[in-house]
């Protein structure tokens, strides 16, 4: 379970997150939508402490961290409970696909090499890239790189995987294979928080859609309600614009 209480993030005077309260159940698939620059990515990055939140508390599993007083050890512990998938894949360029996936198990969890590589092999099978085990990122397509990026997040065995616009950098031809893998994870009830503009993915896969604007949660509910019966004018306005180019 994930629980955010009054989570805020200020960059100087700019308020990017303005007191977010949110509870997500284990196994829930949450899709976060909203206009650009309204704090969607920052929200994910704060949960993983890639950004230091200004205030509020974050609970993931049985670990609760207070943003004001987070120690280095708590930040590391929180990062180990959560896994992150980046928009631009961010694979380690000096490591093969297999090493990218095994890296966390070897270095953070201190698994023996053989066990870590065995686990990496299983994940490569799951993401359909067993034949790319020894390939370096530079020799893989964008879609393959992002699947390895997701594989790396899967290896963590994390409470939640945070997806930050995982298909936004991809050429259209690679989007489907990445969304397909995410659907597969969703069907295994991996807890996921996904920031995306892929509205059909949100409609088909999400248990809950959250609309964020101006650093606040404006509206949330099952996709059928948010997409077909939005209440708030800002939600209606946003959906009208995005559905014109990205229909559900």
């Amino acid at each position: 379970m994930i629980k955010l209480q009054s989570l805020s993030k200020h960059f100087g005077k700019a308020v990017v997150l303005d007191g977010i309260d949110l509870t997500i159940e284990k196994g829930e698939i949450v899709v976060i939508i909203g206009p650009s620059g309204t704090g969607k990515s920052t929200l994910l990055r704060c949960i993983n402490f890639l950004e230091q939140p200004t205030a509020g508390t974050i609970t993931v599993g049985d670990l609760t961290v207070d943003a004001d007083s987070a120690s280095r050890a708590e930040v590391l512990a929180m990062r180990r409970q959560t896994a992150f998938v980046f928009q631009n894949y961010a694979l380690f360029a000096n490591k093969t696909a297999r090493q990218n996936i095994a890296e966390r198990l070897l270095v953070v969890d201190r698994w023996p090499k053989e066990k870590a590589y065995q686990r990496a092999r299983e994940i490569l099978e799951q993401i359909g890239l067993a034949d790319k085990a020894d390939a370096y990122p530079a020799s893989m397509s964008g879609g393959q790189q992002q699947r390895v990026g997701i594989g790396r997040a899967m290896a963590a065995g994390a409470e939640v995987i945070l997806f930050d616009e995982p298909t936004s950098s991809l050429d259209p031809e690679w989007v489907e294979e990445v969304l397909g893998l995410m659907k597969q994870l969703a069907s295994e009830r991996q807890t996921m928080m996904v920031v995306t503009h892929e509205m059909s993915f949100a409609r088909d896969v999400a248990d809950r859609v959250i609309f964020i604007d101006g650093g606040r949660i404006v509206e949330q509910g099952p996709p059928s309600e948010i997409f077909f019966h939005p209440q708030d004018p800002r939600t209606k306005d946003f959906l009208k614009k995005i559905l014109a180019t990205n229909p559900v």
């Binding site: 896994a83 694979l91 890296e103």
Partner: peptide, 18 residues
């Protein structure tokens, strides 16, 4: 070195030394 790789390493819980 690409800054996003640093973020990726931190995101999986590596220390600065690692």
């Amino acid at each position: 070195v690409d800054r996003s790789q640093t973020e990726a390493a931190l995101s999986i819980g590596m220390t600065n030394g690692q």
